[in-house]
Design a protein around this nucleic acid. Structure first.
Length: 885
DNA sequence: AGCTTCACG
DNA sequence: ACGTACGTGAAGCTC
């Protein structure tokens, strides 16, 4: 195998790393106050590269200073750049130290740029038969791509790279890598501050390069160009173009004092690296080094603990005030996870054990169940469910670190206590990954000292973070959201999860056998039409069959090949019968794998029920999500898929399934939040909202019949408004021209001016405050609202207007759930709440209670909050989830 | 682990 | 010229 050469553009990577982490610059400082974000990012990049590429020789090239041969020939070269921030400049010496400790060489050369060092060595490598990888943050280096040299340019962040080979350059620009120089000579480079030819941009430059091959040849044949403004500019700026070409050309013969033999890659220098990490305070990298425990520097403050046994349980009685408690369940699924141990303590004393069975005994059980003793925990729902499995009913949760942290910032959230603590600048507790490892290596440490320290530190972190997080919630006016909604909801959700929903496995198995037969039929038809057997589930193989073998037109491409998504296949359906079969196959295969096999796998054998987990601290809007399995996406739209719901049955004979859902809750919230008079009026009049929208935006008389197509279009517009509309998106969805979609939207805004004003105001609010909020002050931060990138900024703007709507709807149903639970208890009903599906609540109840629910549930749901439009609730009942009517 | 596809609101 | 509707989770393939 060919030898491998790694060349890294040190300066550009350090710049990229610094600016990628710029928004958290103050979180990355070591104990001496040195900023370390760029150093950290550089190491991330290095690890990422060395993961896939194993060099024999490696060099990191740096710029030697501002003055180079280029500045001598062109004064303004790289002029106009902002001064490098001090927080970055101070990091460069340490990056070099890091590079050496990682076993790479570093080099700089007076009067030359890092690019020229790289160009020269890449050429040397090419000639010596090396495979070369260049890593850079600077697109200019792509001119060095060749058959044996690949240029990896960082995309966003530092680990996400785009690999440029000559083929990739050809595909993107339609020219060879060397012709990039000619292109840049013509178009100039605003960041390096050289002009190129007047009025020539990338498009024109590429066209000219394709036509003439090079700048020199272009001027040799300049007479062949027709008379035009562009030609005049070219003639006028000939000298500039030629000079710019020199500026744009990376040297491949710089007078280096080193060669490939001097830059052998040595691999990590463990001792140096450990010392370096310690100096920088890089705990996570230290943890990954897999060192013997004594080599790991433990920077966390020490914590004292006592091991609890059956003989000293009385120690628990000495605890005072609020208790911090943590039951360790190493698997994410707390319905089934083993118990690894627990810790309980009051801030002064920490009691630990590996034996969760101890919790069943008093005084531990009594304390946990006591409504008089407040508890502080991390992820109360997991604790409630886990303790319930031990026969313990955890009462009086005061502080839930996970929940509070989520409400404060939905963005950087994690299920790892250590990670969450870090988000709040608390460093006295390790992350689970650091202590337990990750992937296959993950395990609870056998060493008591290590494990108990971690447990005690977790409980201490909960204790230490309680006051500051409560303070922050209060500052954000989020205390009622926390106390009156989210904490009570935790108990409701825990009860729903514990109750579970009964699923008839035999029903699923019978459906599965039928589907298997149908799949076999369709499969053979597809193979016959294709003329060969292949894996239909592989988009790659399928793409090959459809677009290469059968030569169907390519409608859409993905990053990795041809798109074969539904909308694409639907456009091809009339051109080849195989397409219809593939759509059919996909539909059935999905049912089979996700909903038959998938659900069968998660039915608990003990009770024939499925116990999902609702994630209360995940979504950016305040909605719940459901995992293991997801019960919020059981098929309903297509008749075949809907049959799956037949397997969901009541848990007792003589019981029924009952379901109520909010009708158009998001549009009602929109009417409320925007205060739009027309929209409110339509809802108050009890109109069919999509029909009345159609009437307004298509300017129809009040008594006009609305045909299905008009209503369908108006409905799409209504959805579009809620999601943050674009004419393009709407046009795609309802198959009209973009101009027509644009007109629909303009009409909508004219008819509903309050909505237009709301959108503008909300985006302005987000720009000013950096976040948006719902009717209960649930927050979502939108850092990208100021992004330079159009698409990132646009996305932030759409979420700015959507989040208050979707989030407020989530708030409303959460309140309804809490009330419903109370009503059921107070009325001593046997009915149980089973599922929440965003705007719908599913119950099971004895048949004789159904009339009660028919009245009660809608009453509770539509009075959950008082909006300035009515809420509407519709209910259904049946013997299975499928049979609801 | 990332991508693509498709199920739901 | 950009690159396009909001929020999710699971499965299968590919590297």
């Amino acid at each position: 195998m060919a030898k491998q050469l790694l060349l890294i553009d040190g300066n550009s990577i350090v710049f990229r790393a610094f600016f990628a982490m710029h928004n958290q610059i103050d979180k990355f400082t070591n104990k001496d106050g040195l900023h370390t974000a760029a150093i950290y990012g550089f190491k991330l990049m290095l690890d990422h590269v060395l993961d896939q590429f194993h060099p024999d020789a490696a060099l990191v090239a740096f710029d030697a200073g501002k003055v180079t041969f280029r500045t001598k020939m062109y004064d303004d070269y790289k002029g106009g750049r902002n001064k490098t921030p001090d927080e970055l400049t101070e990091q460069f010496p340490y990056v070099r130290e890091l590079v050496e400790a990682c076993g790479l060489h570093s080099y700089e050369l007076k009067n030359y740029e890092a690019d020229d060092i790289i160009g020269t060595l890449a050429k040397e490598g090419d000639e010596a038969g090396y495979e070369t990888l260049i890593v850079t943050g600077d697109r200019d280096l792509t001119q060095l791509a060749s058959d044996h040299t690949t240029v990896a340019v960082t995309h966003k962040g530092v680990t996400d790279t785009e690999h440029y080979t000559p083929a990739h350059v050809e595909e993107k620009l339609g020219i060879t890598p060397r012709q990039i120089i000619d292109m840049k000579a013509l178009m100039g480079d605003s960041s390096d501050n050289y002009p190129g030819v007047t009025k020539i941009g990338e498009k024109t430059a590429i066209k000219l390069v394709k036509q003439f091959g090079s700048v020199e040849n272009l001027y040799d044949h300049i007479d062949e160009l027709k008379k035009s403004k562009m030609k005049e500019h070219l003639v006028e700026d000939e000298a500039i173009a030629r000079e710019c070409k020199t500026l744009a050309t990376i040297l491949q013969d710089a007078p280096l004092e080193i060669g490939l033999d001097d830059i052998t890659y040595r691999g990590e220098q463990t001792e140096e690296l450990v010392a370096f990490y310690q100096q920088m305070g890089f705990k996570s990298f230290l943890a990954k080094m897999d060192l013997a425990p004594e080599e790991k520097a433990d920077k966390s403050a020490p914590v004292e603990y006592t091991e609890l046994t059956a003989d000293n349980l009385a120690a628990v009685d000495q605890l005072e005030g609020e208790l911090n408690f943590y039951l360790e369940m190493p698997d994410a699924n707390y319905h089934t996870s083993p118990f690894a141990g627990f810790v309980i303590g009051d801030g002064k004393t920490w009691l630990v054990s590996r034996d969760a069975e101890l919790l069943k005994q008093d005084p531990l059980k009594k304390l946990l169940e006591s409504p008089a003793v407040a508890k502080n925990v991390f992820n109360a729902k997991a604790q409630i469910v886990g303790l319930h499995r031990l026969g313990i009913d955890l009462r009086n949760v005061d502080f839930d670190l996970l929940l509070a942290s989520y409400l404060l910032n939905t963005n950087d959230n994690s299920n790892d206590l250590g990670q969450v603590a870090l988000e709040h600048d608390y460093h006295e507790v390790a992350t689970d990954e650091e202590v337990y490892g990750k992937g296959a290596k993950r395990a609870i440490p056998a060493d008591d000292q290590v494990f108990y320290t971690h447990l005690a530190q977790k409980a201490r972190a909960i204790d230490d973070l309680r006051a500051p997080l409560f303070k922050k919630l209060d500052d954000n006016q989020q205390t009622p959201l926390y106390t009156d909604i989210e904490v009570p909801l935790t108990r409701v959700l825990a009860a729903m999860e514990i109750t579970g929903i009964k699923v008839n496995a035999q029903t699923l198995k019978d459906m599965g056998s039928k589907l298997t037969e149908r799949l076999a039929d369709i499969e053979s038809q597809i193979y016959a039409a294709a003329g060969e057997e292949f894996n239909i589930n592989s988009t790659k193989q399928l793409g090959h069959i459809l677009f290469e073998k059968l030569k169907l037109p390519v409608i859409k491409k993905t990053k990795t090949g041809y798109s074969t998504a539904v909308d694409v296949l639907e456009k091809l359906a009339d051109q080849a019968p195989i397409v219809e079969d593939i759509l059919q196959y996909r539909q059935i295969a999905k049912l089979q794998s996700t909903y038959i096999t998938g659900l069968l796998k998660v039915i608990h054998s003990s009770d024939q029920k499925i116990h999902t987990r609702y994630l209360q601290t995940l979504t950016q809007t305040g909605r719940l999500s459901s995992v293991d399995p997801n019960l919020q996406n059981i098929p309903v739209r297509l008749p075949e898929g809907r049959l799956i719901r037949k397997a969901f049955v009541p848990s007792h004979a003589g019981w029924q399934i009952f379901s109520s859902d909010y009708s158009q809750v998001e549009l009602r919230v929109l009417a409320h939040i925007t205060g739009d008079k027309n929209l409110q009026e339509d809802f108050k009049n009890g109109e069919d909202i999509h029909a009345s929208t159609a009437r307004r935006i298509f300017h129809l008389p009040a008594d006009a019949e609305i045909d299905r197509n008009m209503r369908r279009r108006a409905k799409a517009v209504n959805f579009g408004i809620v999601y943050g509309i674009s004419d393009y998106g709407l046009a795609q969805r309802i198959h009209v021209s973009r101009a027509q979609a644009h007109e629909f939207i303009q009409n909508y805004f004219k008819e509903f001016p309050g909505v237009k004003k709301y959108i503008d105001d909300t985006i302005a609010f987000a720009r000013e405050h950096g976040y948006v909020e719902t009717i209960t002050h649930r927050r979502r931060y939108l850092p990208d609202i100021h992004a330079k990138s159009f698409s990132r900024r646009s996305f932030a703007e759409r979420t700015a207007m959507n989040t208050p709507i979707q989030g407020s709807a989530a708030d409303i149903i959460k309140i309804a759930m809490i009330r419903m639970k109370e009503e059921i208890k107070q009325r001593q009903l046997q009915a149980r709440m089973l599922l929440q599906i965003h705007d719908e609540l599913v119950f099971e109840a004895p048949a004789e209670e159904i009339p009660v629910l028919q009245k009660l549930v809608p009453q509770v749901m539509d009075s959950a909050v008082q909006l300035n439009v009515p809420l509407k609730v519709e209910s259904k009942v049946g013997d299975t989830w499928y049979d609801l009517k």
